Amino acid sequence: MLTREKIGTDEAFFLTVAAMIEVGTLMGARDIAEKVGVDTWLVSPLETLFSLAAVYILTHLAMKFPEEDFFGFSRKIVGRWLAWPLSLGLAFYWLALAAHVARITTDVVKNSLLARTPAEVVLASLLLAAAYLAAKGLEPLARACIIITIVTLPLLMLLFVLVLPHLRLDNFLPIMPRGPWPVLQLAFWRISNAEEMSLFLILVPFMQQPNEAWRAAGKGYLLIMAVVITVLTTCQGVLGAETLKRTVIPGLTVTQLAEFAGTFIERISLLFISLWILLAFPTVTALLWAGAYLAGSSMFKLKDYRPLVFFYLPFVFFLARLPKSNLEVKSFFYFLQPLGFAYLWVIPVFLYIIAVIRFPGRLKEKAGKFPGRKR
């Protein structure tokens, strides 16, 4: 078996940010507006609170067993007969999620940048590039995430700052015309949208300071949600809730307003799409790597799990191409929402409760063996 790679807390933080901010965020405002209308801007702040609670339990569950990944500690907690289906389900979830992100990215590229290029070529190119980096291992992936995040994220946020003068406050009124329940219900259900935070179910053993997993995950998630709230609020403030429901890619539509006198790039919205697509690349890469490690190294004990990412590609490609049109993608991949809710909330809570009962005081004992970085 390969010597386990190690990443620092900062690298885990950047990996979290790069993996979670992907092209699907461009369309999040439309999905929320379809359900709660003018209260779209209220959902993400509440979603942040609910999801942070889920991330806290998930990371602290993993921190109870800092030398084990999900398959290892779930086998100790509930036995191998439950650990195997839970781990296989998690690997499938990551691969299906990679297919979903890759399909949305392909559709956005086709619609905005490469209209004459076959979708299969775009999809295959993205998957091959992601698999190449995933096969290099976790450390190169984490370093790539640092570079991609630092280069792209400030530029993306600058584009939304440029359109703030177009924002209208009356697009946020009236507040809660149908009461608070629809907003609270949707915000809680959207815990499933923190999909890539499930990577911490296997990342903790790779960290140089495992007891800092919650710090890396929490700070990363807060930064991510700051970006998401900025994007969604700007989209609603500029377009209005009713227009959001009919807009395919709200983020692209809004950034087109940044094309005013004084800009030196002719189509700045296409620059926005190009930058955002770069953030979809580490998402697909991280998910392919995670699926290969969990199945190859942890469950089946392969000497080198990394080539397994290339064997996954036909399955991911086939799954990504199954929806026949852009309109069918959302309904086809709907199964990811209950799966995400299960692996981010239901299963971690279930395992955590059993772990506390069976291994009382284990967190305190293990944390003492991994002191944090001295300051």
Rank of each mutant, 00 (worst) to 15 (best):
V55L: 08
A115P: 00
F272H: 10
S192H: 10
Q337V: 15
P250Q: 08
V329K: 06
L164F: 14
L344G: 11
F65E: 03
E120C: 01
I224Y: 11
V349E: 00
I148F: 09
E11W: 09
F350T: 15
K303E: 13
A226E: 05
G72Q: 08
F260D: 09
L287S: 07
G291E: 07
K303F: 04
T263S: 12
E22L: 02
A99K: 10
V109R: 05
S298Q: 05
W181G: 00
P307V: 14
T105G: 15
P45G: 13
L271A: 14
A19E: 04
F272E: 08
A280I: 06
L86K: 06
L159D: 01
Q236L: 03
L275P: 02
R75P: 02
G262V: 10
P154F: 05
A217S: 14
L114T: 14
M207N: 11
L203P: 01
V329L: 02
A62T: 10
L97I: 04
L159W: 04
L156E: 03
A280W: 03
V36L: 00
L203M: 13
A320V: 09
L319E: 06
V151L: 07
L184A: 11
A62E: 04
L159N: 09
Y312M: 12
Y305F: 15
E68C: 07
R178P: 00
M157A: 14
P282V: 11
I175H: 05
L288R: 08
I249N: 08
V349M: 06
P45A: 08
Y343E: 01
F264P: 00
I249M: 02
F315T: 12
A19K: 13
V183R: 00
A131L: 08
S87A: 12
L164H: 08
R215E: 04
Y343L: 03
S274W: 06
V227H: 09
V254G: 03
G137E: 02
G240W: 03
R143I: 01
L46I: 12
F310N: 06
W81F: 14
G79M: 05
L141E: 01
F310K: 06
M63N: 07
L223I: 13
L153G: 04
L58Q: 10
A290N: 04
V316M: 01
A99M: 07
